[in-house]
């Protein structure tokens, strides 16, 4: 019997190649966005599309800057964030505890589930006139319709998260003598966090979606109102400025939640 040792010299890392790889990664992620922006600008300036409908990006940027510098758009952002934020916080404060409870008590979940499914499938926008009738055309009905639509993703995600917790982990904890409260605090709650975050991110998106719809009806302030209003007055650059602002708010909300999730779930590898 012969034993041979295979010793191969190590290859050196190549800096030029690392740079190429980095540039490739950047382009594959952002290339299409850059292409889209460039296409818009070129198409609008050269008149391939009507600049009245798709103004060049520099004019949109100017409109955005003017709006922010004059403070007009800042007021709109403030009121919009207040509406969406109040509704979102209310949905979280109600949805997460209720979901944690319902996920653990099958009897309650069974009883409430048909009602929840019915509410969830009924478009919040269809119910908006009902809320206006009940709560008036003021802030309350706006916040409530956003709250209504925002509640279900977070509630259902939390219930799902609790129900999906690995029974084997619960049994393990019980075999070490953990009490019900300890099982909840140390196993069920942390295990549900990733699912809860999926719900939170879905809810944040929904909140912004409903915010705009609510502000298009009977509002005289807010980013959603500004989109409508600018279009009525044919201030198309301002309209696009407001739309981009909304997209940015959505991205920002998502980024905050992702950062929070990373902090709370350092143990898991889930990204984005």
């Amino acid at each position: 019997m012969a034993i041979q040792t295979l010793d191969t010299p190590r290859t050196r890392p190549d800096p030029a190649r690392a740079l190429r790889d980095g540039a490739g990664r950047f382009l594959s992620r952002w290339g299409l966005v850059i292409g889209f922006v460039v296409l818009w600008q070129v198409a609008s300036t050269l008149g391939w599309v009507s600049p009245a409908v798709f103004p060049p990006l520099d004019r949109i940027a100017v409109a955005l800057w003017d709006g922010i510098a004059s403070g007009a758009l800042l007021d709109d952002i403030a009121i919009s964030l207040q509406r969406a934020g109040t509704a979102f916080v209310a949905a979280v404060v109600l949805g997460i505890p209720l979901g944690l409870l319902m996920g653990q008590l099958p009897a309650i979940e069974r009883a409430l589930d048909p009602l929840l499914q019915l509410f969830r499938q009924t478009s919040a926008l269809a119910l908006y006139p009902v809320f206006i009738l009940l709560l008036g055309l003021g802030e309350t009905s706006k916040v409530f319709v956003i709250f209504w639509a925002t509640l279900f993703p977070i509630l259902l995600a939390t219930i799902g998260g609790v129900k999906e917790v690995d029974r084997k982990l619960i049994e393990m904890a019980r075999s070490y003598g953990a009490t019900h409260l300890q099982v909840f605090r140390r196993v069920i709650l942390p295990a549900s966090v990733p699912a809860i975050f999926v719900g939170l991110r879905l809810s944040a998106t929904t909140a912004l979606l409903l915010l705009i719809a609510a502000e298009m009806i009977g509002a005289n302030k807010g980013v959603g109102f500004q989109v409508m209003n600018a279009q009525y007055n044919f201030q198309i650059p301002l309209m696009f400025a407001a739309i981009f602002l909304l997209a940015f708010l959505g991205l920002a909300a998502n980024a905050v939640l992702v950062a929070l999730q990373r902090r709370l779930c350092r143990w898991s590898v889930t990204d984005r």
Binding site: E171, M172, R186, A191, C265, S268
Partner: peptide, 17 residues
């Protein structure tokens, strides 16, 4: 369950967090 016994399962059953 009792404190004088401990179980080791086929899966390690570690808490991932």
């Amino acid at each position: 369950v009792g404190t004088e016994r401990a179980v080791i399962y086929q899966e390690p059953r570690l808490l991932p967090w």
